[in-house]
Amino acid sequence: MAMNRIADTTNAVEVHGVVKHYGETKALDGVDLAVPQGTVMGVLGPNGAGKTTLVRVLSTLIRPDAGSAFVAGYDVLRQPRQLRRVIGLTGQYASVDEALSGRENLYMIGRLLDLSRRAARLRADELLERFSLTEAAGRAAKGYSGGMRRRLDLAASMIGAPRVLYLDEPTTGLDPRTRNEVWDEVQRMVGDGTTVLLTTQYMEEAENLAESVTVIDRGRVIAGGSIAELKAKVGGRTLHVRPVVVAELPSMAQALDEYGVHGATADQAAGLLSVPIADDGQLTSVVRALGAGGFGIAHMDTHLPSLDEVFLAVTGQRAGGTDPTDPTDPADPTDPAGTKIEEFAA
């Protein structure tokens, strides 16, 4: 590889104090991030948190106002050309040419990456097969389903065997089956040694793919660490129980408490009983306790914490350590995380 690359960097991506403002909007407000080589970093945050802006800075599409960032040892500001040789980008919107067939899209990208005609054709066919697109290879991409397009997009990002791959909300808008296909493929890329920076709004996606996560909000990192560390902060799963008779909710919570399962909350409006679950044994205990009390259960299932809950937990925890007079502080405890996320989406 290139000689002027920092030879034995252990972080494939390093971000130091990156700032990007659009007028009053602070899209990135001093972000620090490090992604060790060969790992998957999940960047978790609601709409408008700055995830896409970060990816655009790291892929040389926009220049940061302040701070520095390195990818595979290359400076995003000073070595954009070298940097572009080692990255792949799959955005939220499939970046393929809809008028071209799947094969032609991949062939074109191979040629743009300086593969010979023969090598570009070979590589296109291999990737089409790997992504199960061989049958559709000759058809225009505009006729592809959402999942096929996303797979073609991933294949396009793989043509140059990038060392660092950015996946910007790769499964937003996909059905569960297609989402699983994309996940499988991402895991294989990581197996091949690619470093992945993944942005997502789904805790579940981060948990499935990433070793570590960085939670960002309003352009700032508000939490970071391994998935296990984050879960320790946020709590594990929650069991939702929908009773046959909603009026029984309070007595159900009481019955659980007496049985030794604590912390259950009854939501009369939603008709739901929420029980924090620390281990699988507790599930059995809940069923036993409710059965013994003679309560009818219409439905029950377990949930990983949602992004809202992660935010509530993370921002709540930081509340003590931050300046309470700063009205823009994301850790403001008087602002429930749920409404904040609503604001961003609007």
Binding site: M1, A2, M3, N4, Q79, P80, R81, Q82, R84, R85, L113, D114, L115, A119, L122, R123, E126, L127, E129, R130, F131, S132, M158, I159, G160, A161, E181, D184, E185, R188, D192
Partner: peptide, 18 residues
């Protein structure tokens, strides 16, 4: 997805990126 192995990619590399 099929378990096809990809052949290595040979791309001319220019240290200057020119």
């Amino acid at each position: 997805m099929s378990a096809i192995t990809l052949s290595p990619v040979e791309r001319p590399d220019d240290a200057e990126g020119r």
